[in-house]
């Protein structure tokens, strides 16, 4: 049964414990992105920052709305990145997570271009080859970073004090999300983001602010550059480049 996480944005307090827990569990180094006006630095995911909490602060005619939106790889049900990756570095697992094999990554940027959420990022600088890195849903079968494979919740979920993150079976969480909407009339927008968006995702969201306003891509729009799905031509070029 595929796993999922339900993010209830009405319960997030913006404590960013999830961000620190992710770095700690995955031995990721700190970056220096500098000051940003709304305090939400690092602003975006990178090869070394796999999850960020974005701030949405709006003055709605004298009434301020401030929401905290945790973002990371959505672990799509039918991931465009996997389809785009001809090097076989990415795969969708039956458990739900979309994970990568860095030894196969050739840094072609195809997955970045294919992903409707612009998640994959490339490690530049530092030692070793340039490779794509992203959230792996704490799933690392046989590796030292595995949690989900060991029956544990991801590190971010474990750290969350607000009760905003819930780990479980995807089907059950979709059901629970719908129940929360039904049982709290007026509290949520009537949408479980990720149930069907872009073919469905393993990270599911509930919100009281419309998802478009929070920067979530609307499924109505075609995924950016999905044309760049792997083609034999591109593959040939890359393989040639690799051998050269």
């Amino acid at each position: 049964m595929p796993k999922a996480v339900l993010v209830d944005l009405t319960k997030c307090i913006g404590c960013r414990s999830c961000m620190v827990a992710c770095k700690q569990w995955n031995d990721l180094p700190a970056e220096r992105q500098g000051f940003v006006n709304d305090w939400a630095t690092p602003r975006d995911t990178t090869a070394e920052t796999w999850t960020v909490v974005k701030y949405y602060i709006e003055d709605k005619g004298g009434r301020v709305v401030w929401r905290f939106v945790k973002r990371q790889c959505m672990h799509c049900v039918d991931p465009a990145c996997v389809k785009a990756c001809f090097a076989g570095a990415l795969r969708k697992t039956p458990e739900g997570p979309v994970i990568q094999d860095p030894s196969r990554c050739i840094a072609c940027l195809y997955c970045f271009n294919a992903c409707p959420f612009q998640v994959p990022r490339y490690r530049t600088g530092g030692e070793g080859p340039v490779i794509m890195q992203k959230c792996r849903f704490c799933f690392d079968p046989g590796g030292i970073y595995d949690r989900v494979g060991q029956g544990q919740a991801p590190a971010c979920v474990r750290a969350c004090p607000g009760g905003a993150l819930k780990f479980g079976e995807r089907e059950a969480l979709i059901k629970e999300a719908k129940e929360r909407i039904a049982q709290n009339p007026g509290r949520y927008v009537n949408q479980v983001y990720g149930e069907s968006e872009f073919g469905g995702t393993s990270w599911l969201y509930l919100s009281d602010v419309p998802f478009e306003e929070l920067g979530f891509p609307s499924a109505a729009r075609p995924a950016m550059l999905s044309l760049l799905t792997w083609t034999p031509l591109a593959a040939g070029l890359w393989l040639a480049a690799k051998e050269a």
Partner: peptide, 17 residues
């Protein structure tokens, strides 16, 4: 702590728009 200075690196001054 590198991970915490990463999140809040600099002294700032809050003022209204």
């Amino acid at each position: 702590s590198p991970w915490l200075t990463e999140l809040m690196p600099e002294m700032f001054v809050g003022i209204s728009p």
